[in-house]
């Protein structure tokens, strides 16, 4: 096996991993604040992809010139992000918020219920069969020579994912809202006593997670180019695995976890075959958790009596 093939798979893996990381952030942020595994997040991304498809068909973006296309894609990211974010906040307000004091597993089951409802909406929206997403960005190689492929689509992933992550990091590290989020994640009661409006912080977290999910849905449509009403499950599963792998609740952890998952998937499909990818990814997850139960970048917590 030549170095080029290996390098090529790494490139593909990193591009896919960036997408996984974007979805993983939605899981990890919500978990960090309310300790809820938001099972509906993958299906939220699926709904975002449905919306993106409908918007593209409605606006006739496929026929537009290159400049309009890139502006249109930015608009899609914004529109899907806002819609998914708002939907996420709405679901939190209606479904999860009344369950804040309930037994730990009640919100989890509710989240599974919400994911079923989303799936049904997606089924009615785009039908039971997989749909192909119009290829707005061509898969042309941007590198000189044909030994390594780095396509315009890969560039698109980077162009959307990196700014979003930088913005998120700035928001969490350097704004009052970010400080409030970190405070609530650490200790909600103490945060309340310091005057933080916990419910507002939770709503903001759900919005941010949903926004990133919506952006991810556009990236997914443009790079993977097929969407279906059942796509949320597997994507959600990988993203969630990435979040846990990096240490759930940790924002940089989700990014690292996503990239690791992308790389592992790409390399294992090269080395042991596509059909074993799932087993390899989850096998590695189990091994890592056995030896480092708090994830790669997670903080070790001590049980309290």
């Amino acid at each position: 096996m030549s170095t080029e093939i290996l390098l090529q798979q790494c490139l593909i893996g990193l591009a896919n991993g960036a997408l996984v990381a974007l979805v993983a952030l939605g899981y990890t942020m919500v978990y960090g604040i309310v300790r809820l595994i938001n099972f509906a997040h993958g299906d939220l991304v699926m709904l975002g992809a449905c919306l993106a498809l409908s918007l593209v068909e409605f606006t006739g973006l496929t026929a537009a010139g290159p400049v309009t296309t890139w502006i249109g894609i930015a608009g899609l990211v914004l529109a899907c992000g806002l819609c998914c974010g708002s939907l996420n906040v709405l679901v939190d307000r209606v479904v999860y918020r009344p369950l804040r004091g309930a037994p730990k597993l009640a919100p989890l089951v509710s989240a599974i219920g919400v994911s079923f409802i989303f799936m049904n909406v997606g089924l009615f929206w785009i039908g039971p069969a997989d749909r192909s997403f119009p290829p707005l960005v061509p898969a042309t190689n941007l590198l000189a020579g044909d030994r390594l492929q780095f396509t315009a689509r890969d560039l698109l992933v980077v162009a959307i994912v990196v700014p979003l992550m930088v913005a998120l990091t700035v928001l969490v590290r350097a704004t009052p809202l970010g400080r409030a989020m970190r405070a609530v994640a650490q200790d909600p009661v103490a945060a309340t006593l310091m005057g933080v409006d916990v419910e507002r912080v939770i709503a903001a977290t759900f919005f941010l997670g949903g926004f990133l999910g919506g952006a991810a849905s556009v990236v997914h449509g443009l790079t993977i180019t097929t969407i279906g009403f059942q796509m949320g499950f597997l994507n959600g599963l990988y993203a969630f695995t990435a979040a846990v792998l990096g240490g759930i609740g940790s924002v940089p952890g989700a990014v690292v976890g996503g990239l690791v998952i992308g790389l592992v998937r790409a390399l294992s499909s090269l080395l042991v075959g596509e059909r074993w990818t799932g087993a390899v990814v989850f096998g590695i997850l189990i091994v890592i958790l056995v030896f480092r139960p708090e994830g790669l970048l997670g903080r070790r917590t001590v049980d309290k009596v």
């Binding site: 369950l99 599974i112 219920g113 409802i117």
Partner: peptide, 15 residues
């Protein structure tokens, strides 16, 4: 409607 019904039952019972 199966999935949606299912989902509503889960959400409502938990609520």
């Amino acid at each position: 409607w199966r999935l949606a019904l299912f989902g509503f039952v889960l959400v409502l019972v938990m609520r």
